[in-house]
Every structure is written in C-alpha cells, then in structure tokens.
C-alpha cells in the first residue's frame, strides 16, 4: 500500500480524502503541520499532499520545512484557486511534482498519487542501486590500494614495469575517487 499524507486546515476535506482513498492507499491526514512532520517520521510516506491556503503555514512553506528531513516523498500542492504566484513558488521552492486544483477529480488524483508513488519508488531503487554500486567501487579501490602497496614491495622484472603498473593503479584509484574526471591509462 502506498502511504499518502494529506495536510489541510479543512477537516471535511480530510474526511472526504480518507473516505475516497482509504481503499487504495494507506492514508494519513492531519490539519496540523507539526503532526504531519511526525507522521512523516513514523511512516514510510511516499506522497505528500498539502493544501496551499492555511491560516498558520501555507503549502509551499510546509514543503520547504520538510525538505531537510524528508527530501524523498513526492510533493503535490492542492489549492482552491489558481494563484500563479503560489504555483511559481511551489515549483521553484517546494520542488512540487504536481499542482492540483480543488475540487479534485478522484480518479485523476488517484492516478497522480500512483504515478508519484512510481516516481518515489524509482527514485528509491536508483538510490539503492547507486549506493550498492558505490559500495563496490570503494572495495575495488581498497583492493587497488593494496595492489599498489604490493607493487612497491614485491620484486618485479624491471624497475620500469613497476613504475608503469603503479602509475596505472594510481590513475584508476584517482578515477574512482573522482568519477567526473576522464579516465585514461598512461
């Protein structure tokens, strides 16, 4: 089940949202931004939906607030009327995935949440993959460093060969440490 968090100052909206989507998603709703943040900590929330107009804090501000601790969940802004400034802010500051206007279309909102969830999961997967890849690279690097140490100590046919091997190893290690640089063997 996809965990969805919905923040709105309008209680009835929360009720309607939960009633509409509780059969499809794991729905978390609240009127309080502080509670929302705690819910983010407690549940693996993938999609965050927030109303823009709220008395204490506006949607974009809330997204900015949670950016530091919860950068991964996909964010969607829900608003009563098209306020272009809010849209611009949402996209630039709040890294909003989608902008939804009230009244929502249930089917569309469901699809959007699912899409957002896809994105979230893809992002998570690539994070995992890249984390694993990074781990491998590190172990290779350590091995290469060991090899280099051995090259220095072990007798080799010629001094020249030794130096060539060492420089090749150095270039490789350096490349691993700094992937942006161009790799070429001397």
């Amino acid at each position: 089940m996809i965990h969805v968090l919905y923040l709105d100052d309008e209680e009835h909206n929360l009720t309607a949202f939960r009633a509409a989507f509780r059969r499809h998603f794991e729905v978390h709703v609240t009127t309080d931004s502080a509670v929302a943040e705690r819910l983010l900590d407690e549940h693996p929330i993938e999609v965050v939906i927030s109303d823009q107009k709220m008395p204490e804090i506006c949607g974009v501000e809330f997204f900015e607030m949670i950016m530091a601790n919860h950068p991964d969940p996909v964010r969607m802004l829900l608003t009563g009327h098209a306020d272009i400034d809010a849209v611009i802010d949402a996209i630039n500051k709040g890294r909003i995935y989608k902008y939804i206007s009230k009244p929502w279309n249930e089917a569309e909102l469901k699809r959007l949440v699912e899409e957002a969830s896809e994105i979230y999961r893809a992002r998570k997967r690539s994070q995992q993959v890249s984390a694993a890849y990074g781990k491998n690279l590190m172990s290779i690097r350590e091995a290469l460093i060991l090899m280099r140490a051995e090259c220095v100590e072990e007798p080799l046919p010629t001094q020249e060969t030794r130096l060539r091997w060492i420089s090749a190893l150095d270039a490789t290690i350096q490349w691993i440490e700094n992937p942006d640089s161009e790799f070429h063997l001397p």
């Binding site: 509409a20 009563g80 009230k102 009244p103």
Partner: peptide, 10 residues
C-alpha cells in the same frame, strides 16, 4: 471550492 470539493468528494 473547499466546500464544493469536500461535498462532491464526500
């Protein structure tokens, strides 16, 4: 829009 939203959704 708020009431319409929750009324229709509800």
């Amino acid at each position: 829009n708020n009431p319409i939203n929750f009324v229709s959704s509800s």
